[in-house]
Amino acid sequence: MLQAVSFAFMIVFPNLALMGLGFYMQKSGKINTTFIDTASNIVFNFGLPCLLFFSVIKSEVNFAEQSTLILAGFITTFVLFFGAETYAKFFVPAVRDKGVFVQGVFRSNMAIISLSVATNAYGAVGTSVGAIYMGIITILYNILSVITLSRTSQNTNFKSQSIDIIKKIFTNPLIIALVSAFVYKGLELPLPPKPITKTGELMANIALPLALICAGATLDLKSMFGLSGVSMQASIGRVIVAPLVAVLAGVLLQLPPVQFGVLFVMVASPAAAASYVMAKAMGGNDVLAANILAFTTVVSMIGLAVGMAWLRVAGLV
């Protein structure tokens, strides 16, 4: 048991420490919103794409062997999506809250939190497996987000906004990097020349630490503790229900330990930062989205540690 707790602590503590550093730096005035915005843009447009691209093309992971993991991801996502839609229909009265609630339940922060935890837990293999999973499920996340926010938004021009969001999906740097990596890997091309590979690796190395610092710097404790009823319900769905659905899917499909662990950390992470951006863009309740994001960012890290420790004791990861 002690070994399991130590394992969970080691994979979660670096993330919490970097987020805590970001929170401290922002509160003490060492960094400001201009730095956070600029750094976030660097991570999103350059750092993470390089990390994902080189993780995939250098991986020894067999894509066919991950088909069961991807299936588990689809099952988990659809169960959470349709379950949240059904719940919202009966128990979330405000129209502007419905899509935000649904998105808060099913959409996790895979690109930053999950990928970092998977790397801490399993090293390069965890990064590679996580990157492939994330590349496919991210596309599904964006499609489902457009659907739920379009149907529940009060904005009468949601059709044009949906088209704009769909365009953004296919111009998303992370998706472009992953699709390019899948094609590159599928063609069995050799690794790029050493200078290019080294440059890409250096850029990739800054992605997760800088992203976690920025995530910590954007935490809003007032929003986090000013939870409304709907916000708390969505947070419970993200922090408790989503991980349990992932565990059930992993057990039913008998995933091997590394894939089981990757599935869990990909699903059990906080609400995605993109959920706030999309809610705001499509006329949803952006304050509700911010509350869900802030609360789950902190609480989910505890859930990740407890969940991984329990799964370790059970011999599943």
Score class of each variant (00 low, 15 high):
A279Q: 06
K198E: 15
R238Y: 13
L252H: 00
F260K: 07
A268Y: 14
V251C: 11
M278C: 07
A211L: 03
L248Y: 06
K222A: 07
C214F: 06
F264Y: 11
L227C: 06
A211H: 04
P270Q: 01
A271P: 07
A268H: 10
L288C: 07
Y276F: 15
G237H: 02
K198S: 14
F264H: 08
A204K: 12
S235C: 02
I213L: 07
E201V: 12
A272T: 12
A249F: 04
P257A: 01
I240D: 04
P209R: 03
G261P: 07
G250K: 05
V230L: 10
P270Y: 00
G200P: 00
S269H: 10
A249Q: 01
G226L: 03
S231R: 06
G283W: 02
Q259S: 15
F260W: 08
L248W: 08
L263I: 05
M266C: 11
V251F: 13
S269W: 10
A207L: 03
G229L: 07
V230K: 12
V267T: 14
A207Y: 03
V241D: 06
G283H: 04
P243I: 05
P209S: 00
M282Y: 15
V265G: 00
V247C: 04
V239S: 07
V247M: 00
L255S: 07
A274W: 09
M232A: 13
S269D: 09
M282I: 13
I240A: 14
A268P: 09
G200W: 01
L210C: 01
V245E: 02
G237S: 01
A249S: 07
S228K: 01
P270A: 00
V287P: 08
V262H: 03
K222W: 09
A281V: 12
E201Q: 11
L255F: 02
A271S: 15
V287Y: 12
T218R: 09
S223V: 08
V265E: 01
V262M: 04
V230S: 15
A234Q: 10
A204F: 08
S269A: 15
I206G: 06
A207G: 02
L255M: 05
M203H: 00
G226K: 04
V241I: 15
L227Y: 04
G284A: 13
V258C: 03
P257C: 02
I236S: 09
T199V: 11
A204Q: 08
A274G: 13
F225H: 03
P270S: 00
M282D: 15
V265A: 01
I240W: 05
V230H: 14
M203N: 00
V265F: 00
P257Q: 01
E201I: 04
F264M: 15
V247L: 01
M232Q: 08
G226Y: 02
S228D: 00
I236F: 15
S275Y: 11
T218F: 02
G216S: 08
G229Y: 14
S275V: 10
